[in-house]
């Protein structure tokens, strides 16, 4: 049984299609990164998984439970860090945790939770209305962890966190997965997804345009490491000779400068050797990791071009 399964899940707001017939399966035990620019429909899809928002068509199941009618069964097994929430400003951080412990009939000790998410016990006594965004985010992450949920749904979890907080978030995600939990988290920042995810799904304008492992996506779009090499003279080989090498693709030449994509970082030394064997001296080279940002932009570009063509 999949942790999450959606079937032509759709949500319209008047003319606007916020989520457009999405079929998505997230298996138990994986870390699934849910990517897309702001407004792509990520939060709306999450809202439907938790039955905050009813779908206009299609359906979704979480651990086999229908979101419509079995939402409580789902909520029993899911810990949530929602997007755009607010704490109860007149209640202390500790009272928030106690409330969740009671609601879940769990036996977690609020002090352990505070320690785990790095909140000072003295801060926990203060009213949550005084919390910074980062403190609030830590508290709500802690609330989501109570009762060892089988699935964590984290909507933009790094919002408001400093680098330490982001590292803590990653560590916690790994710990939770090691415990056997499934993690589904959304982000519009790709670097954060890259570090922890097994698979990613990419949303754009309401549609799920790609679901794959990070490697598969890199291969599919043909990016990885980009190598720039400057040579002193024309070596005794052609561009296609280079392209024939393992892990090398998309070789371009601009005078003495060569640019190519490497899917395998060991290919760099081989390329340089090959050029020098060909009689040229490499005077300069640099590599750049193609960021997921580029990859992302490229995928969305492709998607939009296709949409225009089909229109």
């Amino acid at each position: 049984m999949a942790a999450i399964e959606t079937d032509a899940l759709t949500r319209r707001y008047g003319e606007v299609v916020a989520v457009d017939s999405v079929d998505l399966t997230v298996e138990q035990g994986e870390v699934f990164g849910f990517l897309g620019p702001n407004g792509a429909g990520k939060s709306t899809l999450i809202n439907m998984l938790l039955d905050y928002t009813p779908p206009t068509a299609g359906q979704a199941r979480v651990f086999g439970h229908r979101t419509r009618g079995e939402a409580v069964d789902i909520r029993e097994r899911v810990g949530v860090l929602p997007d755009a929430y607010q704490l109860y400003e007149r209640l202390s951080g500790r009272r928030h945790l106690e409330f969740v412990v009671e609601a879940r009939q769990a036996d977690d000790d609020p002090d352990d939770v505070l320690a785990r998410v790095g909140l000072d016990p003295a801060d926990a006594e203060r009213n949550a209305g005084d919390y910074s965004k980062g403190m609030a985010q830590r508290l709500v992450l802690g609330m989501a962890l109570i009762g060892e949920p089988d699935l964590l749904i984290l909507d933009e979890p790094s919002t408001g966190l400093d680098p330490n907080g982001i590292r803590l978030m990653r560590d916690i995600i790994r710990e939770e997965v090691d415990r056997g939990a499934t993690v589904f988290f959304s982000s519009h920042i790709l670097g954060q997804v890259e570090a922890v995810c097994d698979r990613v799904g990419i949303m754009n304008e309401g549609r799920l345009i790609e679901v794959a492992s990070l490697e598969e996506i890199r291969d599919a779009v043909g990016v990885g490491t980009t190598l720039h090499v400057t040579v002193d003279q024309q070596p005794d080989l052609t561009l296609s000779d280079l392209e024939a090498m393992d892990g090398v693709s998309n070789v371009r030449a601009d005078g003495p400068e060569l640019t190519m994509n490497l899917s395998d970082s060991t290919a760099k030394a081989k390329v340089i050797n090959r050029l020098e064997d060909g009689g040229a001296t490499v005077v300069d080279f640099e590599t750049a990791e193609s960021s997921l940002e580029e990859l992302f932009a490229e995928l969305i570009d492709e998607d939009e071009t296709e949409a225009e063509v089909s229109a």
């Binding site: 409580v72 029993e76 949530v80 997007d83 929430y85 704490l87 879940r104």
Partner: peptide, 14 residues
Amino acid sequence: RSGSLKLLLGLPFE
């Protein structure tokens, strides 16, 4: 409106 309802609805409440 504030979004705290999302915290409630993330818990096992009907």
